[in-house]
Amino acid sequence: MATYRPSQMRQQKAQTAPQEPNLVPIMNLFLTIIPFMLMFVVISQVALVALNFSSGEGGGGSSGGGGSGKDLEKVEIIVLDSEYAKTNKFLGFEIREPGMDAKMISANNENYNFVALDRLIKEIRARKADLVDITVTVYPYVLYGDLIRTIDLCKSNGFTQVHYNRAVASFY
């Protein structure tokens, strides 16, 4: 009498785990959406621009200086204001560099020409690759936003030690 073992197929069918829903299309959708969302999202983040006054910087005084304390090859960017423009008929930037004539960058319709300033700073950077110090001298009626943009251009072009200086000290 022949004996038969239980069917293996029946056993397998009984043990089959319930199938999970197919998540691949959903994942594909997410993978498409996320890069677009990240690309278009606008996140306002507070950044910081640092000035170091740790070694004798005058803190807005007319003397300037600061940084390492050694004799520096002083490149200076002077941001001229509207009061200066009234008397001297010029609004914009004046750039002083040792051994070179002072360069003037005039404003366009009372807006400072930051593009030209950026170009000039790049030229200075190309000539003086090792220099990291630069002085920004600001006149009193220059707007804060213009000052920060000037400092920002210096820093973005590798002048990491920006010295803050004000043109007129009339208090105390």
């Binding site: 306002s44 983040q45 507070v46 950044a47 910081l48 621009v49 640092a50 000035l51 170091n52 006054f53 740790s54 920060i148 400092i151 920002d152 803050y164």
Partner: peptide, 8 residues
Amino acid sequence: TRIYFATL
């Protein structure tokens, strides 16, 4: 000794 300016 250090002054930071907050920007965007």
